[in-house]
Amino acid sequence: MRKISYSEAIREATEQMMEKDSNVFVIGQGVWSPWFVGKTCDKLLQKFGEKRVIDTPVSEAAMTGAAIGAALAGLRPVLIHPRMDFMYLTFDQIINQAANWHYMFGGKINVPLVIRGIINRGGEQGAQHSQALQAIFAHIPGLKVVMPATPYDAKGLLVSAVQDENPVIYIDDRWLYEQEGDVPEEIYSVPIGKGVIRKEGKDVTVVAVSYLVPEALKAAEDLEKKGINIEVIDLRTVKPLDKEIIFNSVKKTGRLVVCDTGWQAGGISAEISALVSENIFESLKSPIERVALPDAPAPASSVLEKEYYPNKDTIIKAIKNQIFTK
């Protein structure tokens, strides 16, 4: 099959959905820029024009509100926030408004809105240019939150998000943009709310999201050589969680390492640990191990960054803790 990059997969999905449905449009800061959103919006302006590809003033809150309004009027906006850190400015619109609208108005009207939040970090960018906010959004009833880890899912989940009748937070990480993978040329969808087993194994279950999925696979490969057989689950969606795929795997392995690209405290890894403890506690042979960001803002210095962000080695360490705990 044809191989394309993760960022091209996002771009292609956007282009194809705009071609297919004239109600789809793109709005956000930097969508006319050659670099602001990576290459994920390349050529869209030339193809669809300024009415359907709207680069905006630096007014995150109002632009989010405008996208919500457009969705209420029957359009299907793809709103892009080129850095998740700036999405704090939009919380009233996303959380109070978009997430609640369908419920608080008795189901009379819905908000078919995709909000792309781009994680852009590393490179000594520091605390306000580094954050991953999936846990905050996953906390909110009425939002779906997806985090593709492969080019295939980047396209398929964006298609699903655009087709969804509800607000979907689509989080893509620039650390994945150059990754290449098999991507069909035609439009296809990947279901929201379904994880996937990336590698089968029997000794330890590793549940991961986003860039920690490839890191987990590398860890599994290394450990395989040492006779440790890891099962790697790519969550793909962090809200609603695919509990079944996690439970079934942990019932088999009895050991669990959860890897999240956000903070550990009150985060996705905490939720998954709680669910496993509540539901299948008796299956666990050892305490659950978590790989996530420490309870600290993102530092700038690359020396500190190296400590801060988990990777293959952090995951291997966590797995070894599992194996050697009894």
Partner: peptide, 24 residues
């Protein structure tokens, strides 16, 4: 299309329905 009580919240949302009219 709605009356959210967070002060000023519906102002940009109304801009959004106007934007939709313009796009369509």
């Amino acid at each position: 299309l709605g009356t959210p009580p967070i002060v000023a919240a519906s102002i940009p949302i109304a801009v959004g329905t106007a934007l939709a009219s313009s796009i369509k």
